[in-house]
């Protein structure tokens, strides 16, 4: 095991992937608690598909992928939030429309520019090789910003998540914090997407929150537990993916699934006791 890990860490690209992956797992787990409880988990899913479209276009135009995808997805987050707040359009239908359209556009752009092949596969399911040095620096900076903002607005995020009406009635700028949550989620999704894949990144948001809600009874407990679970699942996932030559994203999701099952069992036992 020790040998395996030290072998792993001798590859620069894996070290990069681990650094970015741990930070993204942390960010997505923290934001995930609020997104899941606010019934916004679909937004995370929608954003990752829109991110896929944006990455495809950036690649076709030979632009820096993150520099294109981050603003596009943050813009999309604003729109999706607006949609789910307005009662006219049904939110989940709108998100489904936007995300499938973005995937369609992305696939068309890729097949026009380079032909379908490895690229699409990598975007969809992620690739550990995707991170360049510049990407790593940008990812680390952004994820630290996400973490800092989350910690600083933790109490507000709790209030807005628990009871938005009360928060608004007593003068908390709930719109601002809803925006903050979805912008942070958008950045996280883009950062994690190329490693985890567009199809799998949203599970990084949803799984840790659901897993810790099986066992923890307080908001703070759920937040802390999600963060730990998420990072550990990521690390186990990446080791397994290396050892068994499996795609990283899928391995991480599989580990999350197993841990979710474990926590569910523990939760059921605790309830009975």
């Amino acid at each position: 095991m020790i040998d395996l890990i030290s072998e792993l860490l001798s590859y620069h690209f894996i070290v990069r992937a681990v650094i970015v992956g741990v930070l993204v797992s942390l960010c997505s787990a923290l934001l995930g608690v609020s997104l899941v409880l606010k019934r916004y988990s679909m937004i995370g899913d929608g954003l990752s598909h829109i991110g896929f479209g944006a990455l495809a276009i950036a690649a076709a135009l030979n632009l820096a992928p993150l520099a294109v995808a981050v603003p596009v997805v943050v813009g999309a987050a604003f729109l999706l939030l607006r949609m789910s707040e307005s009662r006219r359009v049904s939110g989940d239908a709108a998100i489904a429309l936007a995300s499938t359209s973005a995937v369609a556009i992305g696939v068309i752009v890729i097949s026009l520019s380079s032909g379908m092949g490895n690229d699409v596969y990598n975007y969809m399911f992620g690739s550990i090789l995707a991170m360049s040095r510049g990407d790593v620096i940008l990812s680390v900076t952004l994820s630290i910003a996400v973490l800092a903002l989350f910690v600083l607005s933790y109490n507000k995020i709790f209030a807005v998540t628990f009871d938005e009406t009360f928060a608004r009635a007593t003068g908390v700028h709930t719109k601002r914090y809803n925006m903050l949550i979805s912008v942070l989620a958008a950045i996280t999704v883009v950062l994690g997407m190329r490693m985890m894949g567009a199809l799998l990144i949203s599970s990084l948001i949803i799984f840790p929150a659901l897993t810790s809600m099986r066992v923890c009874r307080t908001f703070r407990g759920v937040v802390i537990c999600s963060a730990i679970v998420s990072v550990i699942c990521f690390l186990i996932g990446i080791v397994i993916s290396y050892a068994a030559a499996l795609p990283t994203g899928a391995s991480v999701v599989a580990v999350n699934l197993v841990v979710f099952a474990l926590f569910s069992a523990v939760g059921a036992l605790l309830h009975r006791a």
Binding site: L37, R39, N155, K156, F158, A159, F162, D163, T165, F166, A167, A169, T170, G171, V172, M213, C216, R217, T218, F219, R220, G221, V222
Partner: peptide, 27 residues
Amino acid sequence: GYLPQQTAVQRDFPASVFEVVLSGCLS
């Protein structure tokens, strides 16, 4: 301060009593 008639908190929301009361101090 405001006490709503109904607070539509989801059934599975994890929050301790102290966390909820303390959130009143937030404003």
